[in-house]
């Protein structure tokens, strides 16, 4: 989704959005350690990242949505600022040279200079939940699972859960924050349908065991307000189905993180107006092709590939 018409204001840094996947043993590395990992990896890869001033300069880097320990992902994002940049392709290659097994870089895109941070844009995320190998599958037939999901999600008018906070217990209705929930055949997952590019293999899905055939697809509200952890939903679902709720039997895999397509992801009056025009154009294109304009756009959609070495 090109943003080619957008204005790039003359500033001293380039905004870059990086998309990566996290799988295998790397799911045990927590969010803060992932940030430390990338700080060092970016140096190893020779990315010309911008530093803050002062006595202890730090890299300018911000992550979209922290991923819990134990969760794998095919679509994680963070933003950095660089002074100069090689092409996207070269940068992806250099970064992948510096990665360990379990992390790979999928996208490296330039954002408009006035782009809002990915963190402030996050609105939704897709997840796939499946049973790990070594457990007797609960989800033994697609029809049965579909029925359960229907009874739980479609037929209930509200899904009340209790959440333990630091100070008290609160009850909340999950339903308005679940945008989609359905039973899926795992074999069908992975390459299409999930916002993943055709060419990109989601390595995380290779972790899927042989024993599980079906899983749950979820699209839930994500971000700073009303961040719905899929584990929370899963717990409620298990209780509803009267399943033993050992959540560790499930692997939660994040597929993609989204911004609301209606939210304008840039700052500045002129830039916003430009984006608005771009958006309308885009909607027309969708309409002309007879497609519904999506409510959410992947976080990477705003950026554009860098085709050759770029200086400010």
């Amino acid at each position: 989704m090109a943003a080619a018409q957008l204005h790039f204001k003359g500033v001293s840094v380039l905004n870059i959005r990086i998309k990566f996947q996290k799988y295998g043993v790397m799911k045990f590395i927590g969010h803060l350690d992932m940030m430390r990992y990338f700080q060092k990896a970016i140096r190893r890869a020779g990315i010309d990242i911008a530093y803050s001033g002062g006595y202890s300069p730090h890299q300018i880097m911000s992550f979209a949505a922290p991923l819990g320990v134990g969760v794998t992902s095919g679509g994680e994002y963070f933003d950095i600022e660089v002074n100069t940049s090689k092409s996207s392709q070269e940068s992806i290659e250099a970064l992948n040279q510096a990665m360990v097994e379990g992390i790979s870089i999928l996208e490296y895109k330039r954002l408009p200079d006035t782009a809002k941070t990915s963190m402030s844009l996050v609105a939704a995320a897709d997840y796939l939940v499946y049973e790990k190998p070594g457990y007797e599958p609960f989800f033994s037939s697609l029809e049965e699972l579909q029925e359960k999901v229907q009874a739980f999600y479609e037929k209930q008018s509200e899904i009340i859960i209790t959440k333990q906070t630091k100070k008290s217990q609160i009850t909340m209705d999950l339903k308005p924050f679940i945008y989609e929930m359905k039973a899926v055949k795992l074999k069908d997952m992975g390459l299409k349908d999930m916002g993943l590019k055709d060419k990109v293999k989601d390595e995380g899905l290779k972790d899927m065991g042989q024993s599980a055939e079906y899983g749950l697809f979820l699209k839930v509200c994500t971000g700073s307000s009303n961040n719905i952890k899929p584990e929370l939903l899963l717990e409620a679902f298990c209780r509803f189905c009267q399943l033993d709720d050992n959540l560790l039997r499930f692997q939660v895999h994040r597929l993609e993180v989204y911004a609301k397509s209606e939210e304008i992801p840039v700052k500045g009056e002129k830039e916003r107006a430009d984006y608005q025009k771009h958006l309308e154009q885009l909607k027309k294109t969708f309409a002309a092709e007879g497609k519904k304009f999506p409510e959410f756009l992947p976080l990477g959609a705003l950026g554009e590939d860098i085709l050759w070495e770029t200086h400010c």
């Binding site: 295998g24 043993v25 790397m26 045990f28 590395i29 990896a41 360990v100 097994e101 290779k206 560790l248």
Partner: peptide, 26 residues
């Protein structure tokens, strides 16, 4: 993919599972 000596149930129950998984840079 390397297989770990400890299963997920153990690794997700203990403090800092990253101590036991190896795979570090270099």
């Amino acid at each position: 993919m390397r297989k770990l000596a400890l299963n997920d149930e153990i690794l997700l129950k203990i403090e800092k599972p990253a101590r036991y998984i190896g795979n570090e840079v270099n």
